[in-house]
Amino acid sequence: MHVAFDHLVHLTERPEQVKTAFEQWGFTAIHGGRHPSWGTYNALCYFEHLRYIEWIAIADRQTAKTCGNPLIAQLVADCQEGNGFSQFAFRTDNIEAVAAQLKRNGFTPVGPFPGSRERDDGKRLTWSMLFIEDDTDGTFRYPFFIQWGDDDDVRMNELAPLMRHPAGSISLSSISVYTLDLQRAIHGYRRLFDLPEPDVGRDETGAYAELAVGGIALRLYEADRRHPSTRPFLCKLAGWPSHRHMKVDGGTYIGSKL
Rank of each mutant, 00 (worst) to 15 (best):
His2Leu: 07
Phe5Trp: 07
Val9Pro: 10
Glu13Arg: 15
Pro15Arg: 11
Glu16Leu: 08
His31Phe: 10
Trp38Glu: 11
Gly39Ile: 01
Tyr41Thr: 02
Ala43Asp: 13
Leu44Arg: 10
Leu44Gly: 03
Cys45Lys: 04
Tyr46Leu: 07
Glu48Phe: 00
His49Ser: 12
Ala57Arg: 09
Thr66Phe: 05
Pro70Thr: 03
Pro70Met: 07
Ala73Ser: 15
Asp78Met: 06
Gln80Gly: 09
Gly84Met: 09
Phe88Thr: 01
Ala89His: 05
Val98Thr: 13
Lys103Tyr: 04
Asn105Asp: 15
Gly111Tyr: 10
Gly111Leu: 10
Pro114Gln: 11
Ser116Cys: 06
Arg117Leu: 03
Lys123Asp: 08
Ile132Trp: 03
Glu133Phe: 06
Asp134Gln: 12
Asp135Leu: 05
Asp135Arg: 13
Thr139Val: 00
Phe145Ala: 12
Asp152Leu: 13
Asp152Lys: 13
Asp152Tyr: 06
Met156Arg: 15
Leu159Trp: 10
Leu172Cys: 07
Ser174Tyr: 00
His187Ser: 13
Tyr189Phe: 15
Arg190Leu: 06
Arg191Lys: 14
Leu192Met: 15
Asp194Ile: 01
Pro198Gln: 05
Asp199Thr: 05
Ala212Phe: 01
Thr230Lys: 09
Pro232Leu: 05
Leu237Thr: 00
Trp240Leu: 13
Ser242Trp: 02
Met246Ile: 06
Met246Gln: 13
Asp249Gln: 09
Gly251Phe: 03
Ser256Arg: 12
Leu258Tyr: 08
